[in-house]
């Protein structure tokens, strides 16, 4: 049977590392973010004072993953246009070919794989658009999150220099009027958007598993080994 299948490379090791770094960071961001929003476990009043930084540690964890998101987002944005492997932007620009492919993939999902009229050896337009939505959501989390964060840097100075709060203001102040005019609106938007991301993740996992089961091309292996197997025509 193996001779009938050819192996196609789909993800570089860089992308796979980023994928899992993001996945783990996302879990941490959600756990710590929900704690920040509503501290859901209590520290014992009888605890000694030395190790009591429960909220501080949660915020620290939240910001560390934020920095990881910062860095991976820049890398991903770069790869969108300049990747030597697969330039994702080519799949999201609305050309006739991409639009047709997008709807073919949707049809495939809704006909429960009874109709499959597109080439599944390479990244398809539907997934490319779906991933773009994720990257936009993540960018939105970054901008709103950094706006919540810069509120604490009133002095205009920071341990890494005055450019940092300055940059944060320039880059994120627009989120205040866009979300409704107050910092609280930014915070509300930040929390809502977490749920959009959660829903995104749930469908993403379901869909990749579904593809693996119904297409029988081992799609789930892409994110681990970097390649899948497609039947030779």
């Amino acid at each position: 049977m193996s001779s009938e299948y050819k192996q196609v490379k789909r993800m570089t090791s860089t992308s796979r590392i980023i994928h899992w770094a993001n996945a783990i960071s996302m879990i941490v961001a959600i756990i710590t973010g929900l704690y920040i929003g509503h501290p859901y476990y209590e520290t014992l009043i009888a605890d000694g004072a030395v190790d009591k930084y429960v909220m501080a540690w949660n915020r620290w964890g939240h910001f560390i993953v934020a920095i990881i998101f910062d860095v991976t987002s820049v890398v991903i944005a770069y790869l969108y246009f300049f990747s030597r492997f697969e330039k994702a932007y080519k799949k999201v620009i609305p050309t006739t070919k991409n639009i047709a492919e997008f709807f073919e993939v949707v049809l495939n999902l809704f006909t429960l794989n009874r109709r499959k009229k597109f080439d599944s050896t390479h990244m398809d337009s539907f997934n490319a658009v779906y991933f773009l939505i994720f990257h936009l959501l993540l960018a939105w989390m970054l901008f709103t999150g950094l706006q919540l964060y810069v509120g604490g840097l009133e002095s205009g100075i920071s341990s890494i220099g005055a450019w940092w709060p300055w940059l944060l203001h320039v880059a994120t102040d627009w989120t205040i009027p866009v979300t409704g005019g107050t910092i609280m609106d930014v915070r509300i938007a930040h929390h809502y958007s977490m749920w959009f991301i959660v829903i995104w993740v749930v469908f993403h996992i379901y869909y990749q598993v579904w593809r693996t089961i119904f297409w029988k091309e081992g799609d789930i292996a892409i994110v681990i080994g970097g390649s899948k197997f497609v039947k030779e025509k």
């Binding site: 002095s155 205009g156 627009w174 009027p177 866009v178 005019g181």
Partner: peptide, 18 residues
């Protein structure tokens, strides 16, 4: 209103306290 708000923000100084 929101568009006005964005314009205003970009034309005003940041909240840095000097």
């Amino acid at each position: 209103e929101r568009i006005e708000g964005v314009k205003k923000l970009f034309t005003s100084k940041s909240t840095r306290v000097e």
